[in-house]
Design a protein around this nucleic acid. Structure first.
Length: 519
DNA sequence: CAGAAGGATCCTA
DNA sequence: TAGGATCCTTCTG
């Protein structure tokens, strides 16, 4: 079961069906926990500059992506992180460093104290799943819920600009091991990493002041006789990052579980406040009730003049950006917006949840940043080609995705409303490619690893995972044969139409919406 | 080799 | 007819 997978993940154990953790040779040598311990004792400062061995996976807490433009609005936290953490060696001084596409604070206000995560720990109603929460709430620094959540976004699926040239254990390294005929006389040549680790630890214990030196470890690492003998290259820990990125899809159960719990929590609040489960159905007074309730729930300062600050009904509230929330309520706007996003995610996929957005008047906000992330949550399953899943998807989403209706109804040029009649039914939807891309961009918490804004104000975005974006587009259009080549051809057609263009300094996979499509 | 660019043709609503 | 899909060639980094 999926929960089973989560347990494996939470325990840092090997998943039985995970193809991503297949470098058997390496795995056999270094069980994850031992590897973690090994990594914790690893003083990277002692490594030769050209060792080509990146930082460990579990300490990969300062992911930064090299791009040309600055992130729109780096938060204080992000800035602090960048200040606190030294720039990685691969950071090019000529480029600005930005945070990775991430679950924004809007959805998870605080990775350490996320409401959901906190609830995970305290919620005991899941019976047999309780253990899972325990695991998620584990004090282990290596794999707790927040780290899993962060892994979801800090690991770009296919870093296109990675300058790490060391091979992955799946490729050269593992192949070297596999193809190397195992001669019985070579068995003695195997390095027992456990013994090595123990040796190193003993060395550390006997010489407490050797932390800065690690002479034995240094010698072991610098000794390349083993590599030369077996024609091996240095192990690329970076490949683990890539490998974990491929596991991203396996975190889907965690997302589902979080949403499941969000639903239950929301149910209780709905009962208490006597409001609809669908934020779009709220009246202004119900909006106020929900806001107050949420403020109290998160022990946030009560807002004065709430009725004046939020005169919208639920549907309009759902379209407000996080910035707007924070403008109105600087202290609590972010949390409120995040919580609203969670509610929307939790209920957007309900077949009976009437989306009032479909009845929205155009013109509120042509590109509402607060889209329905759930509209692509099935896409978050991503690469699954499971036909059953597709059938379920068709049943669950018989109506056009709300954002589609909104974007189609409110094109920047005020063109006549072109409503879609059936989402992905039949031969695909009527959604235009540029609208679809906007749609993906509007859900960075879901699609941030596939496509993200580089400079939102200028309409510049980057396709981080061309295969994935093309696959999503193909699914939306019911074109299984869609690929990036075709998608990009369609994008290039927009050049002539003045919808999109390449950036001034052309970059791969970076495009720019023309005015007024960039608003 | 992946991506960019663009011509040509076909399909569909 | 518009929009997009598809196939193709050429070029580039």
């Amino acid at each position: 079961m999926e929960y089973e997978k989560m347990l494996y993940l939470a325990n840092g154990s090997e998943m039985p069906h995970s193809p991503q953790l297949k470098p058997q040779a390496f795995q056999a040598l270094t069980p994850p926990d031992q590897y973690s311990a090994y990594a914790d004792n690893f003083d990277l400062s002692m490594l030769p500059q050209d060792a080509g061995i990146p930082t460990t996976v579990y300490q990969y807490n300062a992911p930064q992506i090299k791009i040309e433009c600055a992130w729109d609005c780096p938060t204080d936290n992000q800035q602090q992180q960048q200040q606190q953490q030294p720039a990685p060696a691969y950071a090019s001084s000529g480029h600005q460093l930005i945070p990775p596409p991430a679950y924004p604070h809007s959805v998870y206000p605080s990775p350490q104290s996320s409401p959901l995560q906190t609830e995970f720990a305290s919620f005991g109603g899941y019976g047999k799943l309780h253990g899972s929460y325990d695991c998620l709430n584990s004090p282990s620094p290596s794999l707790d819920a927040s780290s899993i959540k962060q892994e979801l976004h800090i690991l770009p699926p296919s870093p296109p600009e990675s300058n790490c040239e060391t091979p992955s254990p799946r490729s050269a390294c593992s192949e070297s091991i596999k193809t190397e005929p195992l001669d019985s006389s070579d068995i003695e040549s195997f390095i027992d990493l456990n013994a090595l680790l123990q040796q190193q630890q003993q060395q550390t214990q006997s010489q407490p002041d050797t932390k800065a030196d690690h002479q034995v470890l240094r010698e072991c690492l610098e000794d390349t006789t083993f590599q030369k003998k077996h024609n091996l290259r240095p192990l690329a820990l970076e490949s683990f990052i890539g490998g974990l990125a491929e596991v991203r899809g396996d975190f889907e159960p965690v997302i589902s579980l979080a949403l499941e719990h969000a639903k239950r929590e929301a149910d209780a609040i709905c009962m208490e406040l006597q409001i609809s489960q669908d934020p779009n159905a709220w009246t202004p007074s119900q909006v106020h009730a929900w806001l107050r309730s949420t403020l109290a729930q998160f022990k946030l300062p009560p807002a004065a003049n709430l009725e004046l600050k939020f005169s919208e009904d639920g549907a309009a509230l759902a379209l407000l950006s996080e910035e707007e929330f924070m403008r109105r309520l600087p202290e609590s706007g972010s949390t409120l917006h995040a919580q609203l996003e969670i509610w929307k995610m939790a209920y957007a996929d309900q077949p009976n949840s009437q989306s009032i957005q479909q009845q929205q008047q155009p013109g509120l906000d042509p590109w509402p940043p607060a889209s329905y992330p759930m509209l692509n949550l099935d896409d978050f399953n991503g690469d699954s080609e499971d036909e059953e899943e597709m059938e379920v998807e068709a049943e669950v989403a018989p109506t056009p995705t709300p954002i589609t209706a909104v974007t189609a109804a409110a094109t920047p040029t005020s063109t006549p409303v072109k409503r879609t009649s059936g989402g992905r039914t039949g031969g695909g939807s009527h959604i235009h490619l540029w609208q679809f891309l906007k749609e993906l961009l509007a859900s960075p918490q879901v699609n941030g690893t596939a496509i993200r804004w580089i400079d939102r104000t200028k309409g510049i975005f980057k396709i981080e995972d061309s295969v994935r974006v093309a696959k999503l587009w193909g699914r939306r259009k019911n074109r299984p044969a869609m690929n990036y080549d075709k998608l990009s051809r369609s994008i290039r057609q927009y050049y002539k139409k003045g919808i999109m263009k390449k950036t001034e300094r052309s970059q791969r996979l970076v495009y720019q919406f023309c005015h007024p499509y960039n608003q």
